[in-house]
Design a protein around this nucleic acid. Structure first.
Length: 585
RNA sequence: UGGGGUAUAGCCAAGCGGUAAGGCAUCGGACUCUGACUCCGACAUUCGGUGGUUCGAAUCCAUCUACCCCAGCCA
């Protein structure tokens, strides 16, 4: 009986692996030239300061997928160079999400903090080469000295300290002799560079802050621009893939590599991050939704986090399929969320057992069906997968159908139940509506029908055609369930776009940052308490997924579902051409 | 107005000098005991604009335009 819940279909083999994108083209070229001796080694480098979202999934699929496709390796490396932001909670969540997506880093789990000693040594080398110096300028002064987009910067008065002095000062920075912000170590490059990243960037800052992995060992921490390329080099990364905003950091990346690394040099390539319609993906904004309680947490089923999708009922296969389909390019773009949902439905259609659930029940009485009688009917579990087998459901005189499936005064193309009309009850009989019972307020409380015993599914007269087929649950077997209908958190296609016109922007416009909150969909969650569902759902395992016939895909909630209190989340609705046709009128 | 990028259909996206892949969306139609699925069909005489090179240009050259990113001791 529980078989239905476990009969998870075969995962479709993804054959779209010969993907053509500019990064793979580069790799094919590198392979042809035997660069890196034929090695392909990538890495996924999250900062453990938040949960992974759908945008990260694109990067994970690119990095792990590329390694897989070219017979290479992909490391997981936490970019944990800023202890004030980071936490092990995020480290664990990130690991779980990557595993859930189906990728494996083998034994190659690394942390930038693993390299703090080596990075310190690299910095010392730079000083010894006269290519780095300790600078006493305040943060404000550094900003002033940096110049602007159109004007060159000025050299720091500390720029020409002797190597010995720099060495001494840097060591004393490490030893904790100076307070936060008192000094920094900077690369000595070019204050007049048109690329601001090259204007003597800070590479080490003083931060008296315990680190989640190194504890109190360090009070100076390397900056991303310094730690990242060198970590790549330490791990023998060949292709270092990141997003577009780091494009003008590439000269700096190369500068550190060229000055400190011999042998194979990792190369950085940049691709456009994912944007999704009706979705916010900025870490800051997601954090806000969580912290201000607009959602129940990072794993709220409405969140575009991987934890949220998991709780919602998305399959990892569908997310990977999506990531493979959207492509990888350098043009900023916003993918229609309809594509994600398409991938989801395609996967779930093949896998999810069908079951009947009435979300907004209205009672039907089959007046010519004997009182007290019940009978077992056979129902196929998944027409897409015969191996999923059959189950038995109970029919009885009283049953429930969807309130929406009855209309007293229907339009011409209405295939469902209405007075005097016939419909088939899925897996059961054809019934005909004879009478409508209403209460004092005119609300329909019962629909009286007769059934045609000859039309039993699979029976001799079962071939008779009627236009509509309804899902139903008999009173004899129905159990109550809570159903949570989730909708988009934002209805706006681009919730992150400012509503204010750029032209009118005044200097003082801090508040715009929270603009997106005003676009929250007030109906993103609707809770239905008295749904009638097949009794088999009582035993559904948390996280198991079903198609509620004619309605959509639903998932037994990972946290709240139990046999005593069945709770189902709507993952996504079925496509509904009837609703679309209605809307057009 | 400095530097770095990007422009191919409603949305993604291939294309790499030989005459515009594919997917999503949309619109028909077939099938259907899920108005689902599936299937069949339609959907860029044109690649941001303009000039040029060439027998031939989305691809090469010139120029213009639009949009994105950069002035953290964040990543």
């Amino acid at each position: 009986m529980i078989n239905i819940i476990l009969c998870w279909g075969v995962t479709k083999i993804d054959t779209s692996n010969t993907s053509s994108n500019f990064i793979h083209n580069i790799i094919r070229e590198d392979l042809k030239m035997n660069k890196y001796g034929g090695r392909v080694h990538t890495r996924f480098p999250p900062e453990p300061n938040g949960y992974l979202h759908i945008g990260h999934a694109k990067s994970i699929c690119l990095n792990f997928g590329t390694a897989e496709e070219f017979g290479g390796l992909c490391n997981l490396r936490f970019d944990d160079t800023n202890p004030s932001q980071e936490d092990t909670e995020f480290v664990e969540a990130i690991k779980e999400d990557i595993r859930w997506l189906g990728f494996s880093w083998g034994d190659r789990l690394y942390y930038a903090s693993d390299y703090f000693d080596q990075l310190y040594e690299f910095a010392v080398q730079l000083i010894k080469k006269g290519k780095a110096y300790v600078c006493d300028l305040t943060p404000e002064q550094i900003r002033e000295y940096r110049g602007t987009l159109t004007q060159p910067g000025k050299e720091s008065p500390y720029r020409n300290r002797s190597i010995e002095e720099n060495l001494d000062l840097f060591e004393r920075m490490k030893n904790g002799e100076f307070p936060n912000g008192a000094k920094v170590l900077r690369a000595k490059i070019d204050m007049a560079s048109p690329n601001l990243n090259m204007r003597d960037p800070v590479i080490y800052r003083i931060m008296h802050e315990p680190h989640h992995r190194t504890g109190n060992k360090w009070c100076i921490y390397p900056m991303y621009d310094f730690a990242h390329p060198l970590s790549d080099a330490i791990e023998n990364i060949t292709h270092s893939i990141c997003t577009l905003e780091f494009e003008d950091h590439r000269p700096l990346y190369d500068w550190f590599i060229d000055n400190l690394i011999t042998g194979d040099k990792p190369k950085q390539y940049e691709f456009a991050r994912l944007n999704l319609t009706k979705t916010v993906t900025s870490k800051r904004k997601l954090r806000k939704l969580v912290e201000k309680g607009y959602v129940s947490g990072w794993d709220d089923p409405r969140m575009p986090t991987l934890a949220g999708y998991r709780r919602r009922g998305y399959t990892p296969e569908s997310i990977r399929d999506f990531c493979n389909r959207i492509g990888v390019a350098k043009a900023n773009s916003t993918v229609d969320i309809a594509l994600l949902e398409h991938c989801l439905r395609e996967d779930l259609n093949a896998k999810a057992p069908r079951v009947m659930a009435v979300l907004d029940p209205v009672k039907v009485v089959i007046t010519n069906y004997p009182e007290g009688q019940t009978e077992k009917l056979e129902a196929e579990n998944n027409p897409e997968n015969p191996a999923a087998g059959h189950r038995q459901i109970l029919f009885s005189r009283n049953l429930f159908i969807e309130r929406e499936d009855f209309m007293e005064d229907p339009p011409k193309n209405y295939f469902r139940l209405s007075p005097g009309k016939e419909v088939r009850l899925k897996h059961a009989y054809i019934i005909k509506c004879e009478q409508v019972i209403k209460d004092e307020e005119g609300k329909i409380v019962e629909i009286h029908c007769t059934y045609d015993p000859d039309t039993k599914s699979g029976g001799p007269a079962a071939g008779r055609k009627v236009k509509g087929t309804l899902h139903w649950v008999s009173e004899a077997e129905a159990i109550n369930a809570e159903v949570r209908l989730y909708d988009y958190l934002f209805l706006d296609d681009e919730p992150e776009a400012s509503t204010y016109c750029e032209v009118e922007l005044e200097p003082d416009q801090e508040e715009d940052e929270d603009d997106f909150l005003s676009k929250l969909n007030p109906n993103s969650l609707k809770i239905l308490k008295n749904c009638k569902v097949e009794s088999i759902l009582r035993d559904a395992l948390p996280g198991s997924k079903f198609q509620f016939l004619r309605q959509g895909y639903f998932c037994a909630d990972l946290k709240d579902h139990s046999p005593q209190n069945p709770v189902f989340n709507r993952i996504v609705g079925l496509k509904d051409s009837w609703a679309k046709a209605k809307q057009k009128k």
